[in-house]
Write a protein that binds this DNA or RNA. Structure first.
Lengths: 256, 256
DNA sequence: CTCCAAACTTATCAATTGATAAGTTCGGTT
DNA sequence: AACCGAACTTATCAATTGATAAGTTTGGAG
């Protein structure tokens, strides 16, 4: 339990540090944030569209998904989140959830109370900016999904999605060699990419045939990375990983 | 010029006030922000993918669009912005633009230097939270676009897009009765909705035939609002307009 | 080890969407 | 008022995608 706790705080501090220049006091403030851990089973909802949650969600392990439910009952997946992500900062300043979050596989989630987080952020602009930046990167990923789903043919679209997931898994050291978890069924991939599961299967067949990647049993294997990137027209700059973030010159220290 | 200036500051203060509880000092800080105004012609780029802009863009009049350019040269529009929007806060903490912004019709833009804006935000958490909230609403609109383009048939998709644009125009008092500006060609609508311009034309024909809306010469006329909303499955809650934002209870005042 | 349900694969066929192309309307310019 | 180019409209036809359905594989549970 103590180990688990420290792991969450460490992950949080690492994540924030990658997106801003934290002062010692910023780190201390993060360490002071209380949280509770909950586990979720595959498919289980964490928060639902229409809810007014009072806690922000931090992924400790597993994969969770953001999705919309249409009035027809149809589901559209919006984004996927893995260890170290805090997808729910998106709703830190929005009262009513406009989407749901669910576990994709077995997931362990830390919950941070919104009001406590906000109180800390009021006094710590460096932290605010770091978390703000994280939400802006999420938004960049949403934008890319619009383009991917709107402008690319099925195989290219699936390939682009896989490039993104693999890149993000690598960033969190969750890839083993050229393999990472991607525990989505072909039906779910279709609901993420705006394709029927049949089209997903066709696209996947093509990507296997051309020896670009394989995806089965929830594991993504990148067979030929550079060919895959070329095929998918994948340019990772929208993920803003590289310390493009070099905002260290910014005046984050409060004056007076 | 003085009039123009005050109009920009007023718009900015109004916008921020709708998304947070501003102290007098917050408003004063906004008033102190210098800016320059520039005009753009239809189709002209304001910032480009790959740029490292040093100023944030505030729309004073006209419509501007966010878009991606694929390596094929194909264009995907991501979002549209009108008077009072500040689309470029999305890049306030991201060094390299992952998308471009262009004028759709004649547009007047106010430019606020990033470093000045950031400096003000360091000391004014209330302002930070208000602008942060604006970027989160943008993100909610991106999410909705993913779902709209991924899950709805062409006519429903176009109808949903029109509902959104009309609702946002009304919010800024830019609608006259049931008509508002929507200066996009059918080709551009296609590039926004992931459809060919032929499909846009077919969808539009259907919406006219069923007397839901009309769209011609850059003007959107909502003929039967409630039937349109029903047809499009449009639920405006994702726009987070209603003081769902009732965050006035939040402690925005710095302590100590 | 066997069974079962879910996920995946594959084929066939229908429906939708996109490409091409030609004609028309519309707005702005001269 | 006539012209011009861009945008829009419409038709035809090809290509893609989706629905249905049936068989296969896979991973757990008992």
């Amino acid at each position: 339990m103590a180990k688990q706790s420290s792991s969450v705080h460490d992950l949080l501090i690492n994540k924030a540090s990658q997106h801003g220049t934290l002062l010692q006091a910023d780190k201390a403030a993060l360490l002071s944030l209380p949280f509770v851990v909950r586990r979720f089973r595959p498919g289980q909802d964490i928060v639902r569209q229409g809810d007014e949650p009072d806690a922000a969600i931090f992924v400790q392990s597993g994969m969770i998904a953001r999705y919309h439910t249409l009035s027809s009952g149809e589901r559209q997946y919006i984004s996927m989140h893995i260890k170290g992500d805090m997808p729910d900062v998106q709703s830190l300043f929005l009262k009513v959830m406009d989407h749901s979050l669910c576990a994709v596989d077995d997931a362990s989630i830390a919950l941070f109370r919104h009001d406590v987080v906000r109180r800390v952020l009021v006094d710590r602009p460096g932290l605010s900016f770091a978390f703000w930046r994280l939400t802006l990167i999420d938004a960049a990923i949403f934008r890319q999904a619009i383009t991917n789903n709107g402008s690319r043919a099925p195989a290219e679209r699936l390939a682009h999605f896989c490039c993104e997931r693999y890149t993000l898994a690598c960033e969190m050291n969750l890839a083993e060699g050229n393999v990472c978890d991607l525990p989505l069924t072909q039906t779910q991939l279709g609901q993420a990419l705006g394709l029927s599961h049949i089209s997903v299967n066709r696209a996947l067949r093509k990507l296997r045939r051309e020896r670009l990647l394989d995806l089965r049993s929830g594991k993504l294997e990148v067979i030929d990375h550079s060919a895959l990137v070329r095929f998918a027209d994948f340019d990772p700059s929208y993920l803003h990983q590289s310390k493009d973030s070099d905002l260290s010159h910014m005046a984050f220290r409060k004056r007076r």
